[in-house]
Design a protein around this nucleic acid. Sequence first.
DNA 1: ATTTTTATGTAACGACCGATAGATAACTCA
DNA 2: TGAGTTATCTATCGGTCGTTACATAAAAAT
Lengths: 216, 216
Amino acid sequence: MRYKIRSMVGRGQVEEQVKAPKGRGRPRSFDRATALEKALMAFWEHGYEATSVSDLTRIMGIGAPSLYAAFGDKRTLFEEVVRVYADTHGAFVGRALAEEPTARAAVERTLREAAVAYTDPAHPYGCLVVHAATNCTSPEIEELLRERRNRNIAALASRIRADVAAGRLPAGTDATTLARHTGAMIQGMSQQARDGASREELEALAEIATAIWPRD
Amino acid sequence: MRYKIRSMVGRGQVEEQVKAPKGRGRPRSFDRATALEKALMAFWEHGYEATSVSDLTRIMGIGAPSLYAAFGDKRTLFEEVVRVYADTHGAFVGRALAEEPTARAAVERTLREAAVAYTDPAHPYGCLVVHAATNCTSPEIEELLRERRNRNIAALASRIRADVAAGRLPAGTDATTLARHTGAMIQGMSQQARDGASREELEALAEIATAIWPRD
DNA sequence: ATTTTTATGTAACGACCGATAGATAACTCA
DNA sequence: TGAGTTATCTATCGGTCGTTACATAAAAAT
């Protein structure tokens, strides 16, 4: 067990580095958060299995023992990467859900922002949670992201149900299907981005996708 | 270079096996088509990279030299698997496109049949072309399926454009986006199936997805 | 019956996988 | 200064990857 350093990124102010908890032995020669971000990019682009430990050590600029000391094994590193991704690059979904007044507005904004995020040339295309653990030798890793995907859809469904209960959507509205449709659109858009679709094309997709919502 | 046996399946009548071209040496001790189908299932379930050659030899019930003699290397085997898949399990898209009178009807039928096919317990869930080559070490394999996906969308787009030209769809219809939307839905449904969605859930998805088509 | 051709089984190849042992370096604390 | 602690470097571990050499087996051709 190894002490946690706050890997908070883009989460309010940066609160200028607690100078590392002044440990006792030889100080780490690399910035942990920076190395973690490099690992994130690698996993994002190539997925869990296709990113080897030697890929990681090369990209992160550290030796294998340093990686294992700082992050545990490959699987633990990946789990941390997924957590960081969800709190940063993948946070726009939860933000829309929390900030928009209606489920419909939240979904529209989510799809619109997904079109931008998934085609941003500053990082790999598409969504890490959607793509980084398909065709995996270890079922636990696959399950890790599958649960995250299904949890997102479930959260969206309950948000929609709340709107139905509040009369903001027609009484007969199928919240589950509507939520699943949004999930499918996000996954489809992510794949399209990986297959070369442009931001404009995904935005057009996002726009017509909301036509399925019940007329109010 | 190795002679081709017609691996046509479900393509009109079966025309009862040409008895194998009566080769000269020791006859093959296994049925090539059967072994190929086993390989197809394995690749379908686990993807290209996560299916090792020793997995394949075990599942196909043959030794490695037999596999290499009959199918070339792993990559060539996969390419043949993809071709067989497209002509059989994945043929329903092209069938709908060829048989239905309008693009809209073709898409509706495609999505409806995808809901059934992607959750059929007789084989792995989802679509091989969508999932079997994500997170791949070799870019060529990824490209192989990516091209197939984009080709399908392009074919659909041109079908839609034909309907627009024939006045079966409004003049301003964005055929490209409509086609891409169908592609995204198929990919999303495939992922949903892999994530545990039921046939009924995917059918509900397919039904509401067609609401985006222009009212005629 | 011998030769030729093709397939099969055994066993191994080099390359890479994830992970670690052991020696050494760089820091804090007494 | 020395003892204790932690990180890094080099080198390597056993395992698996895709692939193939080699000897043998089973058929057709001569």
